[in-house]
Amino acid sequence: MQDISVIILTFNEEKHIKRCIKSLLLFTDKIFIIDSGSIDKTVEIAESLGAKVVQNTWVNYAVQFNFGIQNNPFNTKWLMRMDADEYVLPELAEEINQKLGNITPEIAGMYIKRRVIFMDKWIRRGAYYPIWLLRIWRNGQGACEESWMDEHITLTTGKTIQLENDLVDHNLNNLTWWTQKHNLYAIREVIDLLNIKYNFRNFESVEPNFFGSQEQRTRFLKVKYASIPLFIRPIIYFLYRYIFRLGFLDGKQGFIWHFLQGFWYRFLVDAKVYEVYHRAGRDKKAIENFFKEEFNKDLTK
Rank of each mutant, 00 (worst) to 15 (best):
M1D: 14
Q2P: 01
S5L: 09
I7M: 11
F11W: 15
E14C: 08
K15S: 13
H16R: 09
T28Q: 06
I31L: 12
I34D: 05
G37M: 02
K41V: 03
T42N: 02
E44P: 01
E44Y: 06
V53P: 06
N56V: 03
G68A: 08
N72I: 11
N75M: 08
R81L: 12
D83R: 08
D83N: 13
A93M: 07
I96F: 05
G101V: 08
G101K: 03
N102M: 07
I103S: 04
M110E: 05
R114F: 00
F118R: 06
F118N: 02
M119V: 02
W122P: 04
W122N: 09
R125H: 14
R125A: 07
R125F: 13
L133S: 11
R135S: 12
W137P: 01
N139A: 11
G142R: 01
E151Q: 15
T157E: 10
D166S: 10
V168H: 04
L172D: 11
N174W: 07
T179H: 11
A186Y: 06
I187G: 06
R188V: 01
I191N: 03
L193F: 15
L194M: 12
K197H: 13
Y198D: 03
F200G: 08
F211P: 01
S213K: 05
E215H: 05
T218V: 13
K222F: 01
S227G: 03
F231Q: 12
R233C: 04
P234D: 00
I236M: 11
R245H: 14
G247H: 07
K252F: 15
Q253A: 15
Q253K: 08
Q261C: 10
F263H: 09
W264C: 05
D270P: 04
Y277P: 00
Y277L: 05
G281I: 00
D283N: 15
K284P: 00
K285G: 12
F291D: 02
E294Y: 05
K297I: 15
D298V: 01
L299I: 03
